[in-house]
Design a protein around this nucleic acid. Structure first.
Length: 382
RNA sequence: CGGGGCGUGGCUCAGCCUGGUUUAGAGCGCCUGGUUCGGGACCAGGAGGUCGGUGGUUCAAAUCCACUCGCCCCGACCA
């Protein structure tokens, strides 16, 4: 991406109404835009981070045997009455009537819907176990949205549901998910602690939450539950076992706040200049900064290097704006791009400077070796 | 929902207490021209707000009063 063709707007100052680091930096870096309290748009490179996090989650979910589906945000209230959870969510649930005067709601979670799907199709012990997941937008009319994206009223969540035949099998599913979660957070560069938690409205027998260890007190970024047969009994999710008897499926559910992960990563990876993205989720891996856009030779080399790295599938941002070097450096720091290639004073010697955002280590590299340097650096990122 | 704070050009804010030289300011950003070109450059010129909204008090309201809308922070709840 070339900056002049992009839609990136940074600002020097954080918005006056932001308190939390991630909230300030996401605004300043131009990743998100607030529409109303607790509701945000993702701007291009904010979306890219969200997508990279989603991809990591998707990969690890698939590896653990979960199968991706996509369920609707719009749900009938009747299903929630059936599961006896209709009143439990209280005002967090956005309920309204459609034109036929039927009570509808915007899904704050999907146990009911996924259960409805499973009970329709799963009939035999041969169909189990199964784990279904989705990455989808949730709606919760939070009492108090806060900390920007960390607690919002509309947010992206990965939710997975396991259906097993026995408690032992369910334990195994739970364990698989727990391992997948550990892997996901590790790949996102997040340090987490796992603690047993109150199951709250979701209910069930046992739950553990994954809490990011950052500056911000919030997050909780993941929560896994052993649900037992509670939902199965209320919603009649049953299968016929080998012995010919109908039995309730044993359920588990596993959530990750995808948008919240993005904020948590920033909370744990930043300095006074801005965000320090781990390579795994950075909106761009490399930025090329020609310090003087009126130097046509420099611009030409920058463009060639951009093409070369682009074709090597390195996610790159060429800062081709007519701005001073200082502005470009400050923006690169703010946005948090892991590697910065500076075309400047050493260009006459055929060299460029490559600076690592995280370690602040600088390397003078011959132009022809840039691609190789980056490829090997990315294999083993700092 | 309870408690606290705040709404003035795109952004950050001053002015409000002690209404009237304010034709409403500053910095940043933006536009034009020029000079710069390795850490948010400089010079010159320019565009842009009726002060969240409504009602009231007054000869006079951004400034006082009432109501209202919105935003942020603390608390109870959640990924």
């Amino acid at each position: 991406m070339k900056w002049t063709c992009s839609f990136i707007f940074t600002s020097r100052k954080p918005p006056a109404d932001a308190e939390t680091v991630s909230q300030k930096l996401m605004h300043q870096a131009g990743m998100i835009d607030k529409l109303v309290s607790g509701v945000y748009s993702y701007l291009p490179h904010g979306l890219k981070v969200l997508q990279k996090v989603s991809d990591i989650i998707r990969e690890e979910m698939n590896k653990s045997g979960a199968i991706e589906i996509l369920m609707p945000a719009l749900q009938p209230a009747s299903l929630w009455k059936e599961s006896k959870r209709y009143g439990k969510m209280g005002k967090d649930m956005i309920v309204f009537k459609d034109r036929h005067n039927r009570e509808m709601l915007l899904g704050p979670t999907h146990e009911e819907v996924v259960s409805d799907i499973v009970r329709k199709y799963v009939k035999s012990w041969k169909n189990l176990p199964v784990m279904l997941y989705q990455i989808q937008t949730k709606y919760r009319d939070e009492i108090r949205p806060r900390f920007g994206i960390i607690r919002s009223r509309e947010f992206l969540m990965k939710d997975c549901y396991s259906f097993d035949r026995t408690d032992l099998e369910s334990e195994q599913s739970y364990f698989k998910m727990k391992q997948a979660y550990i892997k996901i957070f590790e790949r996102c560069g997040l340090a987490v602690t796992i603690q047993t938690a109150d199951s709250g409205v979701i209910g069930g027998k046992f739950s553990e939450e994954f809490v990011a260890t950052g500056d911000c007190a919030e997050l909780e970024i993941g929560h896994i539950f052993k649900l037992g047969t509670d939902y199965s009994e209320k919603l009649h999710i049953v299968y016929v076992d080998k012995d010919g008897n109908e039995k309730p499926a044993v359920m588990g559910c596993y959530g990750i706040g995808v948008s919240r992960i993005v904020a948590a990563i920033i909370e744990g990876n930043h300095d006074e200049k801005g965000i320090i993205w781990p390579v795994s989720v950075a909106p761009f891996i490399v930025t090329i900064i020609p310090v003087n856009m009126s130097d046509s030779n420099m611009v030409e080399i920058a463009n060639k290097m951009y093409d070369e790295l682009q074709s090597a599938r390195i996610d790159i941002l060429l800062d081709d704006r007519e701005e001073s070097a200082g502005v470009k450096f400050a923006d690169a720091d703010l946005i948090g791009i892991p590697y910065r290639i500076i075309l400047g004073r050493k260009l006459s010697e055929g060299k460029v400077e490559i600076l690592e955002r995280k370690t602040k280590k600088s390397h003078d590299i011959a132009i022809e070796n840039v691609k190789q340097f980056l490829i090997s650096a990315l294999k083993n990122p700092a």
